[in-house]
Amino acid sequence: MARIIVVTSGKGGVGKTTTSAAIAMGLAKKGHKTAVIDFDVGLRNLDLIMGCERRVVYDIVNVINGEASLNQALIRDKHCEQLYILPASQTRDKDALNQEGVGKILEDLKKDFKYVVCDSPAGIEKGAHLAMYFADDAFVVTNPEVSSVRDSDRMLGLLSSKSRRAEQNQEPIKEYLLLTRYSPERVKLGDMLSVDDVQDILSLHLLGVIPESKSVLTASNSGTPVILDEKSDAGQAYADVVARYLGEDRPHRFIDDKKGFFGKLFGSK
């Protein structure tokens, strides 16, 4: 049975698109046919992070309006043939997405794909609502910072009351915490909320901690999801996340400040 995953946060700029690209690629590389959808209508960016911006012809709004078929709009990833991208449109029309249209697309994708990853826009408006409405699983992307944690909690409230599962009294959406842009050094100095601090407040199932990493910028510069940079800390952390989501038991890494003298001297990757 196909599963719909929403990558959400409430707050903007916390790493949803980075995460969506990474986990979609991770799932596909494990052999699962995966589609990743950009719900950020008006601010399309997933195509850039996935490196397929020049191959965008049709987008999700074209499909909803019947101007293109789903198959025409889906872009096959150049690194992995199990992975497809459905781009957002650049229209400024706020009502371009509607529940019926999105529901239809997701139903169609579920017939053919194992996982559908929905990259939510920031905020709690229509786009964010539609990205999470049909979800089976939610990856709540949170930075160790007050406003992000608060917004994540707000989002949890919406997931458990305003989703289809909630409205139809089905089993609730499975919620997972993904703590990103984490700096063990700053946590050690007492400048940053720790994993445990955030867990004490949100008490979610922790899927992984993604360290603050230069490799994320490098990856986005070249348009390759960071998970493909297997040497990087962030890439490895995302690989762990995917493995854990698929049921593997992996110890958490990148949580402690393990850098010795040389690490400090040369900085992290």
């Binding site: 910072e145 007050v146 944690v149 608060r150 909690d153 707000r154 409230g157 946590v187 100095l189 007492g190 400048d191 940053m192 909320l193 720790s194 601090d197 004490d200 407040i201």
Partner: peptide
């Protein structure tokens, strides 16, 4: 530490919300 102040503020706020 500023992190422990942050945690305390968040706990109160989140419980209220």
């Amino acid at each position: 530490s500023s992190a422990s102040v942050a945690k305390e503020r968040l706990q109160i706020l989140v419980a209220h919300e």
